[in-house]
Design a protein around this nucleic acid. Structure first.
Lengths: 171, 171
DNA sequence: AGTTTATGTCAGTCTTGTTGACTTTCCAAG
DNA sequence: CTTGGAAAGTCAACAAGACTGACATAAACT
């Protein structure tokens, strides 16, 4: 009975045993727990600054793509402008983010991290990289390749395309 | 310059190139986007029932370990009892969860899904399993193994132990 | 009998998301 | 040059879901 519930339309060949509902459910739980640990590190740091996860995300992607517009960021984060604006205003007020009027289109705002912002970004991402590095090196390169492949496939195709393009065109 | 920032103490051998800061950052972003897509499916379903992600998590683990106590669930979810209680009370009121007084220790409450609860669980987890199955089958068994290995390593050791034990002792 | 444990509850706060309405700025098409 | 609409910012109100702290109750343990 155990581990034998095959998914619809799957033959019982050994090569497909990783698609049982049980295996899928285990993957689902691993995602839940891993993500929680993954966000716990920066969350602890953010407490000291009275910021939240939303601030972290903004800082991360501004660092990733310096000069991106508010609309770009909205697109990436998938939240409303009102929600992002609250966070962004704080970061600008606190001198972590520089919001410059667009040169070609002056309606737009190009976002940059200040030195202070970069310092926090470094601190936050360092804490996550420590965890990733440990997991990667314990698991080994082949596992990491598989990890990346599956995660990519979990992302909606149109979003995946945008992300992969973003990752290629790195600073 | 690109993709060449080695992490502290890493030799430049090809076998360790997957530990550059860039690679780690890409892993971090993949986690962010994949998790968002991963939760988007059940979130859409939950809207129809006026429930949130917290309800989903409770339902998931009650289904996973029928008869678990409130304390067990608190331990797994890592939230406060006040936070869980709000959710649990709703689920009991709405007839999705059955809270029975413990037989050996009558202070405890053993939690079970009702038929109605199981139906919703099925609907929710099915939507996630569709995504997982698609990702798994596209990526292939070797990638899935790597995916699982890395995720396990991302989880704090003590929590990891408990989870793996939970996965083994499946219903 | 007193203490600890498991659970439940009330009140209040915070972050982060939402919607809706409105203004300002500015580009571009008519 | 005027005007329509897009981009951005702002204000207000609200909800979910996390938190803390205090307190209640029942049961079990010592």
């Amino acid at each position: 009975m155990q581990n034998s519930t095959l998914t619809t339309g799957q033959s019982k060949g050994e090569q497909l045993l990783f698609l049982t509902d049980d295996q899928l459910r285990q993957g689902i739980e691993l995602m839940f727990f891993a993500y929680r640990c993954f966000t716990a590190d920066p969350d602890r740091i953010l407490e000291n600054y009275a910021y939240g996860r939303a601030h972290h995300r903004a800082i991360h992607f501004i660092n990733r793509r310096p000069g991106l517009t508010v609309n770009d960021l909205l697109d990436i984060l998938g939240v409303t402008k009102q929600s992002l604006n609250r966070v962004l205003r704080q970061l600008v007020e606190d001198g972590l983010v520089d919001s410059r009027v667009g040169r070609t289109d002056r309606r737009q705002r190009n976002l940059f991290l200040t030195d202070k912002g970069q310092a926090l970004e470094q601190e936050l991402s360092a804490s996550q990289r420590v965890r990733m590095r440990r997991a990667y090196s314990t698991a080994g390169p082949e596992s990491v390749q598989g990890f990346r492949t599956v995660l990519e496939q979990m992302i909606d195709p149109d979003l995946r395309e945008r992300i992969l393009r973003m990752m290629e065109t790195r600073a």
